[in-house]
Design a protein around this nucleic acid. Structure first.
Lengths: 119, 119
DNA sequence: TCCATAGTACGACCGTCATCGAAAATAGGC
DNA sequence: GCCTATTTTCGATGACGGTCGTACTATGGA
């Protein structure tokens, strides 16, 4: 111990009541971050940072995870050397009813490129 | 024809199917633009450009109206020298179900500064 | 015809943010 | 103890977008 510089690495998360609409929208407006959220939603289970498919470097991805976490969109926790990510769907739904689900629905619909109409 | 010299200034509007989620989110992420949309929603009727309350210059406001229009969020039309603005709520609801309404709900809830919890 | 009113176009400025690479930290296995 | 895998930190860079002021256009009325 001795104030283990390694407190098993805890991660700070905001209470939903502390995040603003502005924060959430800023988090979701970035395409890469939306990819992350979409993949998380589609997976249906927690994913480690390294398992995401995004067209940016790992360090950039870390940045995006931070933004998402600070906006209350995802929850992160360590498991050994890997860091897991989970969607805070329920809490978001409480704080901003319909918001995350609407974005997610639109993002996923686009991915599966169902109908035409384009992007 | 006739093409009245004064085409009475027509305004171009995108078909909802042509606007992307990205565009809509980018439009709604700006606080000033959200103010505009909120005031429009709250008014319950079309408002002319000059009747909005925003902390920016008129030319900046014009820019914001353009962004909102190109994202399919508002519809604009001239009436004499004034330009009116209307929310395209129904069309947005079709294109991105729940999105605009969720943002609007959150934005209006904040305005009326109901409970604490802050911004 | 001239003026007042309403909004637009243009160019410039500036802050913010996504991005990267390189170097560091942390935990687990051998 | 050391090596490796995983993620973070740091500083630099570059692009994008919100902002403004000024000059301009368009409409309607006197």
């Amino acid at each position: 111990m001795a104030r283990p510089r390694t407190a098993t690495r805890t991660v700070e998360h905001p209470d939903p009541s502390e995040v603003s609409l502005q924060q959430v929208l800023e988090a979701l407006v970035d395409p890469v971050r939306r990819m992350v959220v979409s993949q998380l939603a589609r997976a249906g289970e927690d994913k480690s940072c390294g398992t995401f498919d995004a067209p940016v470097s790992l360090s950039t991805l870390t940045h995006h995870f931070n933004v998402l976490r600070e906006a209350g969109v995802i929850r992160q926790y360590y498991v050994g050397t890997t860091k897991m990510n989970a969607l805070r769907t329920d809490e978001m739904e409480q704080r901003f009813p319909g918001l995350l689900s609407a974005v997610l629905a639109a993002a996923l619909a686009k991915e599966s490129g169902s109908t035409a109409g384009g992007n």
